[in-house]
């Protein structure tokens, strides 16, 4: 089966004050129809930049695809015209963002904003678009949707605003939904509601989901495969269960161990959390021919600072970009 989305050797460069930085450095992965893939990493690791590249929304003038390709259904969208991209966005690929307040327009009612998507992309008339919008708001479990459609964003709670964003994103039944930290600004019980909703909608529409998060718990809860990013590079890739139970990159291992998780049974022992010493490299250090994690790694050896690690593949298809992958 050929993949729905296939990213090959993608390199994205960003102009910074210190020069050109490869914020995505030779990234390859594929996404199959209907599956959920998660990107994990700290701020600045390139996970959101990947999403923006797929959407064709890289920061204008300063960001560009330097090499590689993004194939959606076989079509390279890095070479698509602006017009074609507008068609793809919304219809085929859509996105929800972290802060639902700033992504909604404060001067239009939520019904109008959802209806606009339908008029623009599905060429529905005013009335048809409005009634479909109300149905959509209902399907994302906005209570009393017909009346609520006439509300402005500030009249809704954070959870409801995120539901509106989901309604807009799913209005045209996209093949891919990119969710960039969709619940980071929300309380945990509201987060559970949103995940439940996404799972339901995914089952109905068959959309594939790319979930961007920093929370390993979220990954475990909703994704089948995961990619761990560090300083613009993929450091580990594999099935969620495999990676979480046996990480093959020291950074992944650190990310899992540095957070106190709720376990099945709590005991009296509270071991120290694993610390990842130091901080993420600055943009001026991106792109070196070395392991960028070396300065924070306790397995660091001579080879790590002399050459970028080759990806090592394990039998269970897990990939690790570490010279010491076997001994992690």
């Amino acid at each position: 089966m050929s993949a729905l989305l296939s990213v090959e050797n993608l390199r994205i460069e960003l102009d910074t004050r210190a020069g050109v930085a490869p914020v995505i450095d030779d990234l390859s992965f594929s996404l199959n129809a209907g599956e959920t893939l998660s990107f994990v990493g700290e701020s600045g690791c390139g996970k959101s930049m990947t999403a923006l590249a797929i959407m064709g929304l890289l920061p204008e003038k300063i960001g560009r695809v330097a090499s590689g390709s993004i194939l959606f259904n076989g079509e390279d969208i890095t070479k698509a015209s602006d017009e074609r991209l507008r068609e793809i966005r919304g219809n085929d690929i859509s996105m929800i963002f972290q802060e639902p307040m700033t992504s909604l327009n404060p001067v239009f009612t939520i019904g109008e904003q959802v209806a606009e998507v339908l008029r623009r992309h599905q060429k529905l008339g005013r009335k048809a678009a409005w009634s479909t919008a109300v149905e959509l708001l209902n399907s994302v479990r906005i209570p009393d949707a017909a009346r609520r459609a006439k509300s402005y964003p500030h009249q809704l709670s954070g959870g409801q605003r995120q539901r509106v964003m989901i309604a807009m994103a799913l209005a045209c039944k996209p093949r891919i939904l990119i969710a960039d930290e969709p619940t980071t600004a929300l309380d945990v019980t509201i987060q559970a509601q949103i995940f439940d909703l996404l799972e339901d909608l995914q089952a109905q529409t068959g959309s594939a989901i790319i979930m961007i998060t920093h929370d390993m718990g979220v990954v475990a809860e909703i994704a089948e495969r995961m990619i761990v990013m560090y300083a613009g590079r993929m450091v580990e890739h594999g099935n969620v269960d495999d990676v979480l139970s046996r990480p093959r990159h020291p950074y992944t291992k650190g990310l899992i161990g540095c957070v106190p998780h709720l376990m099945a049974t709590l005991t009296d022992s509270r071991p120290e959390l694993t610390e990842i010493s130091g901080i993420v490299p600055g943009l001026n250090e991106f792109g070196q021919n070395a392991c960028l994690f070396a300065s924070r790694c306790n397995l660091v050896g001579q080879q790590c600072v002399q050459a970028r690690p080759k990806e090592k593949q394990f039998e269970n298809t897990q990939l690790s970009a570490c010279w010491h992958a076997e001994s992690v």
Binding site: V188, T189, A192, D196, D215, L244, L262, M263, A264
Partner: peptide
């Protein structure tokens, strides 16, 4: 109970031991 069950966990045993209790609304 709802609050605890809503916390996403990396522990597979926890996920199979506890149900996710959804509390509706805000």
């Amino acid at each position: 109970a709802a609050l605890l069950s809503a916390v996403p966990s990396v522990d597979r045993n926890r996920r199979s031991k506890f149900k996710r209790i959804l509390i509706p609304g805000d």
